[in-house]
């Protein structure tokens, strides 16, 4: 079965299945962003704060994504770690209009990067500086420096501004992530 799978893969028929973890503080727009990636007819207008996690599926660049949309509320953040080991990539969403809590986001990011299941592996991370539409929101450069991304040298990462409600910037970030995951998987295969 494994042989047949990779054969299909090689021919470019079957889609390779990958897992990504979507994290970030509560209210940053994680669920909204994934909602935008759903087919039009299944998108919803009402998004409740996530309790625990939710699963979403989407497809991009020949990869079939399973996204673990984690809850960002502080009491659930410790549970993210249970899903690090099996993930192929990370989507980190930041509310760029929430300047006070961006430091909390930075803390959480440091925690994540220093976790053994993450630090030991080459996992690509895409950052969304979300809610760019709100007045006085930080720019992608502003968010990048607030999070101290310059210091992240052992991971490939990318940041882009986004509006999860309208979808601006979302495709850009996801496409980057797809390519990054593909090349990291290919690397691993070789």
């Amino acid at each position: 079965m494994g042989l047949l799978d990779s054969f299909f893969d090689w021919l470019g028929f079957g889609k390779r299945e990958v897992n990504v973890l979507v994290v970030g503080l509560d209210n940053s727009g994680k669920s909204s962003l994934l909602n935008y990636l759903r087919p039009r007819e299944t998108q919803t207008d009402f998004i409740a704060p996530t309790v625990g996690f939710n699963l979403e599926h989407f497809v991009c660049k020949g990869l079939s994504f399973t996204a673990f949309d984690m809850s960002g509320q502080s009491r659930y953040r410790t549970l993210w770690g249970n899903y690090y080991r099996t993930t192929n990539g990370i989507i980190f969403v930041v509310d760029s209009s929430d300047k006070t809590r961006i430091l909390v986001a930075r803390e959480e990011l440091q925690q994540l990067l220093s976790h053994p299941d993450i630090s030991s592996r080459n996992i690509p991370i895409v950052f969304f500086a979300n809610k760019m539409d709100i007045r006085d929101a930080l720019s992608d450069v502003g968010v990048s420096s607030a999070l101290g991304l310059d210091g992240v040298t052992n991971k490939s990462w990318h940041i882009c501004s986004s509006n999860a409600l309208k979808g601006e910037g979302v495709a850009d970030g996801i496409e980057w992530l797809s390519s990054a995951i593909k090349s990291s998987l290919d690397q691993a295969r070789r």
Binding site: A48, T50, V51, G52, F53, L55, Y76, N82
Partner: peptide, 8 residues
């Protein structure tokens, strides 16, 4: 409770 949202 981690499965709460998935179940709802």
């Amino acid at each position: 409770i981690i499965v709460t949202s998935s179940l709802t």
